[in-house]
Design a protein around this nucleic acid. Structure first.
Lengths: 158, 158
DNA sequence: AGCCGTATCGTTACTTTATAACATACGACC
DNA sequence: GGTCGTATGTTATAAAGTAACGATACGGCT
């Protein structure tokens, strides 16, 4: 897959990754859902990456430990993590990123740099409200939003 | 593919479709690009549909007249039509719809009904501006936007 | 008209992304 | 210990998209 071509920022630290996993565990416990080892593994791979990962990228990484793991296992874990709001899917890349604020449901907006692959997760209330208003004006009841801007990040323009 | 399951609104009239094709021809001529028969055929199929169509749906329809047509031909036509702003791609559905305002470039926002498959193309200046502002605040230079709300349209709620 | 360069298209084969279907395992509860 | 629901393993296949290369068509030129 390899989204970024030029600059790539440093991988998330092991500490950050562990903290994210701890939070995920806590949230799942609170909600009465199970963060099973497979789901945890998938989340760990995603959180440990500095780039969005495709399902088959994740698969490949998991095969290092579990050579016989197959696509449905990964997709099932991804479905779970999406449902629980622990990750996001970037539709325009067919790739997945960890959620920065998994503790409450939200619309997110993503700025995706085509040069370096960096993904910036925003939660602009203005964007959210303007979208809600637009939907309301049409009597439309939104369940899920996909908001992705593709372009160049500040660093790659400089 | 078959996006809509329940209500489906009537197909666009032949008159509408013809008008859209006329406009597309005019725009292409003005721009010095060629709306070739294959491109025209693909556009016609998309415009004649009341639902977003996947590339392979389009392929299948074209095969009625041209049994040996292959995926690359369709994808090339789709690329052209996207570049010229004559159609849009709905990333969350892997499907394509005709553009309602092909005469000037624009960000669009889409309201996609999960029940009936209807797609509403919006051009809310508030949404556009709030997204531009959010991007600007991060020094991000957007090239393309994907804004899609999935949910239920007014009719399907009633 | 004939020639050239480029754009478009045909064709084959293939890659990448995603899911259906069914078998097996495992844990919670009676 | 049986059985019910949830999660996973496993095989196969569907759906979406592209690479590569040759053939043909088109527009501009002399």
């Amino acid at each position: 897959m390899n989204v970024g071509k030029h600059y790539t920022r440093p991988m998330p630290s092991a500490t950050e990754t562990r903290k994210a996993l701890k939070l995920a565990e806590k949230l799942c416990q609170e909600r009465g859902v199970r963060l099973t080892p497979q789901r945890r593994n998938v989340l760990a791979v995603i959180n440990a990456s500095d780039q969005p990962l495709g399902a088959y990228d994740i698969l490949e990484q998991l095969r290092a430990q579990q050579p016989r793991i197959a696509p449905p296992t990964v997709y099932r874990a991804l479905d779970f993590l999406l449902t629980e709001g622990l990750i996001h899917k970037l539709e325009s890349l067919h790739a997945f990123v960890g959620c920065h604020h998994p503790d409450h449901p939200h619309h997110s907006q993503f700025l995706i740099c085509e040069d370096c692959g960096e993904v910036d997760e925003l939660h602009s209330p203005l964007v959210r409200d303007s979208l809600d208003d637009a939907a309301k004006a049409r009597g439309f009841a939104p369940k899920h939003s996909t908001v992705e801007l593709l372009g160049r990040c500040a660093r790659c323009q400089a």
